Computed example of a mutant assay.
Amino acid sequence: MAKHFLLLNLIVVSFCCAVLAFESSPMQDFCVADPASTVKVNGLACKDPKSVISEDFFFSGLHLAGNTSNTFGSKVTRVNATQIPGLNTLGISLARVDYAPWGVNPPHTHPRATEIFTVLEGSLQVGFVTSNPENRLITKVLKKGDVFVFPIGLVHYQRNVGYGNAVAVAALSSQNPGIISIANAVFGSEPAIATDILVKAFQVDETVVAQIQSKF
């Protein structure tokens, strides 16, 4: 019985350590990023608190529409510790996403963050795919004021299903959530993934792989 109790305690402690190790709570009021520092840490070094000013916690421009005249018909405007140095160590970031009619924010993942997504204008079809082996698509059409959550690390996307422009704001649970665009990562890596690997993975002809790679 004592052994089982000890094992249970060890498991609980392990989970606690795992939680604390993932973007842990700051140990000071703030740690404004100092991009000029040569100190290498997991994040950005702090500038001297005495030199911190209000501008370190401020960003202007999220009211401006992003330029959607590109292949995807969408534009992501990020607000993270690069734009607001005061976000450093606070574990959050933000993005505005603009969509032209039928524009797409193509399938991608955020390896370090869960995303909570709010539609400000228009109608958007959103979705994410669960992990293997189910690979189940969870999808919904959102309208103005609707909110949707994309769990950490899962492949997700958005598509404007209206005839007008659409706008959304995404809040993420990391100061640097990262983004892995699936098509770019698979077909546009440098150096390229060997063609025969992609042929087997996607069960297509070699010429198809070459054609897709040429676009990235």
Rank of each mutant, 00 (worst) to 15 (best):
I84L: 09
I84N: 09
P85I: 06
G86S: 09
N88I: 06
G91W: 01
G91T: 03
S93I: 04
L94W: 11
L94R: 06
R96W: 08
V97A: 13
D98E: 12
D98S: 14
Y99H: 10
P101W: 00
P106E: 07
H108G: 14
H108T: 10
T109R: 13
T109E: 11
H110K: 10
H110V: 06
P111I: 12
P111W: 04
R112M: 07
R112H: 12
A113P: 15
A113K: 07
A113R: 01
T114F: 14
T114V: 11
T114N: 15
T114H: 12
I116G: 00
F117W: 05
V119F: 07
G122H: 06
S123C: 14
L124W: 08
Q125D: 13
Q125W: 02
Q125H: 13
Q125V: 08
V126T: 11
F128V: 06
V129C: 03
N132R: 14
N132I: 15
N132A: 15
E134K: 14
E134A: 13
N135W: 14
I138A: 01
I138G: 02
T139W: 04
V141K: 06
L142K: 03
K144M: 13
K144L: 14
D146E: 10
V147G: 08
F148A: 03
F150H: 03
P151A: 01
G153T: 12
G153V: 09
L154E: 02
L154A: 01
Y157S: 02
R159P: 05
V161D: 01
G162I: 08
G162W: 05
A168H: 03
V169F: 11
A170N: 05
A170G: 05
A171K: 02
Q175M: 11
Q175D: 13
Q175T: 09
P177I: 06
S181M: 10
S181Q: 12
A183E: 05
N184P: 14
N184H: 15
N184Q: 13
N184W: 04
A185R: 05
V186R: 00
F187M: 01
F187Q: 02
G188P: 00
S189T: 08
S189N: 09
E190W: 13
A192E: 14
T195N: 12
T195L: 07
I197M: 14
I197W: 07
I197S: 09
V199L: 07
